[in-house]
Design a protein around this nucleic acid. Structure first.
Lengths: 210, 210
DNA sequence: ACCTGAACACCGTTCAAGT
DNA sequence: ACCTGAACACCGTTCAAGT
């Protein structure tokens, strides 16, 4: 069925397709099955699974820096971060790879350049641009780690989960947890994307006025 | 050697001790060996490894809310976040557990209450307190996911790693990456803790002045 | 009642043998 | 030159058998 003549890019594309929306790691067995090839054949083209994951993770970041808006600096930053978050939430098993190390691949370099360029063009001195870059990346990439598990669920399942958590807080002992019980219905309100947007807006506002 | 009479808290304490500073998952085999007990004996006291991890993660958060300062609201928030980050960096294999779900254990409830209480006392309306809480947690817990791998290294090894990364950016093609190459020496400057403090201060400033 | 020990399923990885 | 297939190490989990 599938071609028995592998190339790195065929392996990569197939792996990315399998990782799309996958909340548990994609095994090499699954990859081999979809390629119509023995599990071990992949080792001809990638040193190990980690190398394949790294390549796949960078592959998925390509859309992040395409055709960026040039209206205001914070609109550009928000676009980059929203796209980055979106891609990482779509490929949760690759997001771990992006978190684990610094951006040392082509599309990650482009992402870094775009953010740094936007910040320095906006008037941030070099050192503050670097600190702002780190802050923005920590919030954006970090937020994915918190939201990934829930993002994989359907919209209705997600809302039900959030409601369940709200109830847990509402049902706590009011003497020990007066604030949590009182504002339980405000916790996990709206979507995770909304909460991220709010956090990013606050961070950018704070970075601009130190 | 070790007692063959297990209790949940003996299992828990031993597991936490093994997880201290461990950058790779602590296996049940390692736990059994240190307890002087067969691997499978743990299943008498915890449903599975996930339950053990959850209990260990919460156990480690106990110091976060002890004797909090009551000077200013942002000093309190910073103390909570610094302690939380510190504990999660110390136990990287448990940090993943904290990230994966919402705070639904005793010490996590205390942490949530302390943050929400501090924010509402500072004058944040309920809805904004909840959004601020989520933003603060995303940055703090998320930052650990990015810094954990490096934090496990010794100070000198860490500095060498940062210098290596700076050189990678400095050596990029200057035409395609003009900004990254120019400010390469400002990237990964100082410690990860410094960069986190900067990010948290900016976030808190932005949250206070929406 | 609690632990042991063998067994199983799963997964990444290696390597000699095939074509 | 490239893939197959068997084998290995590792890890979480189950369960009948021991005491």
């Amino acid at each position: 069925m599938a071609p028995h003549r592998l190339t790195p890019s065929i392996v990569l594309d197939t792996y990315v397709a399998l990782a799309d929306g996958a909340s548990t790691p994609v095994t090499l067995a699954a990859l081999g099955a979809h390629l119509g090839v023995d599990t071990s054949a992949v080792y001809r083209h990638f040193a190990d699974k980690d190398a394949l994951l790294a390549a796949a993770a960078d592959h998925v970041l390509a859309p992040v820096t395409e055709r960026l808006p040039t209206t205001t600096w914070d609109a550009t930053v928000r676009t980059i971060c929203t796209r980055l978050r979106r891609q990482l939430l779509r490929y949760p098993t690759l997001a771990a790879q992006v978190r684990s190390g610094p951006p040392l691949h082509p599309n990650e370099f482009r992402l870094t350049e775009a953010l740094l360029r936007t910040l320095t063009d906006a008037g941030f001195p070099d050192e503050q641009a670097a600190l702002a870059y780190h802050a923005i990346i920590e919030l954006t990439v970090g937020s994915v780690a918190l939201d990934a598990e829930i993002a994989a669920q359907s919209t209705s399942a997600r809302r039900a989960t959030y409601r369940r958590w709200q109830r847990v807080y509402a049902d706590l002992d009011g003497d020990e947890f007066p604030t949590a019980t009182r504002i339980a219905q405000s916790l996990y309100a709206g979507s995770a994307d909304d909460r991220f947007d709010y956090a990013l807006a606050a961070l950018l506002a704070g970075l601009a006025r130190p």
